[in-house]
């Protein structure tokens, strides 16, 4: 078993122009920072990025947007990024907005071998356009299709040499479902340990879903909105 790579540049080998990537994270929480930096360095273009959000202007996927490396975003909420807005209004960027739970389930289904499924979210709204509608027990549902990606880039707290992953707090978010849905899933982890050191009872993402793993370095872990209370 050879899943361990020395760094992001080595782990991302094979990512070329015009591929579809899943990128884990919610806002700036739990994003694969090293992978994103490596994509900037590699300069790959024409990417379709499936990610709940699009980062901020100078961090996260905002770095790829600034470099015009993204052709299309598939997301649920993209409000925090002025460059994104500029490219969208200028017609330079395609955007597919999807209800958040549907997006998560489309990724999960892609990894679970379920080609499509019905959900109620979006029925009767513009999201329903062109989708099959079906009634179950008096309630209306839309047919939604699974998503997969050429590469899924995820971030975890701890990982082992077999690719088993453990997330911390709310930094799991989309990472688990996306790890399942990547044809090649690349995990960057804060602590990479030998197989056997993680408690098998505590694994969130079993290593079968992870093809490549490396130790993150120099993580910034930026906070989008620092909010505190008075002592």
């Amino acid at each position: 078993m050879k899943k361990v790579f020395p760094d992001a540049m080595a782990a991302l080998a094979g990512i070329t122009d015009n591929l579809t990537l899943m990128v884990g994270g919610f806002g700036l929480c739990g994003i694969p920072e090293n992978c994103i930096s490596a994509l900037v360095q590699m300069g790959v273009k024409g990417l379709t990025c499936i990610s709940n959000n699009a980062g901020v202007d100078n961090f996260g996927l905002g770095l790829l947007l600034r470099n015009r490396q993204i052709k299309k975003m598939i997301s649920s909420y993209v409000g925090e990024n002025a460059e994104f807005e500029r490219q969208l209004l200028a017609g330079e960027l395609e955007v597919d907005l999807i209800p958040q739970g549907t997006l998560a389930e489309r990724c999960r289904a892609g990894g679970a071998g379920i080609p499509a499924f019905y959900v109620p979210a979006g029925y009767g709204t513009e999201v329903a356009g062109g989708k099959e509608v079906r009634e179950f027990d008096g309630k209306m549902y839309l047919l939604e299709h699974a998503l997969t990606a050429d590469f899924a880039l995820v971030k975890a707290w701890k990982g082992d040499t077999h690719g088993n992953l453990i997330y911390r707090h709310t930094a799991n978010n989309f990472n688990h479902a996306m790890a399942m849905a990547g044809k090649i899933t690349i995990a960057e982890v804060e602590h990479l340990v030998p197989a056997g050191e993680l408690n098998p009872n505590e694994i969130h993402t079993p290593g079968i879903f992870v093809q490549r793993i490396f130790q993150s370095v120099n993580l910034e872990k930026r906070i989008e909105f620092v909010t505190t209370r008075q002592a």
Partner: peptide, 8 residues
């Protein structure tokens, strides 16, 4: 900006 989780 998107619907986030509101539709779900």
């Amino acid at each position: 900006k998107g619907m986030g989780g509101a539709m779900d």
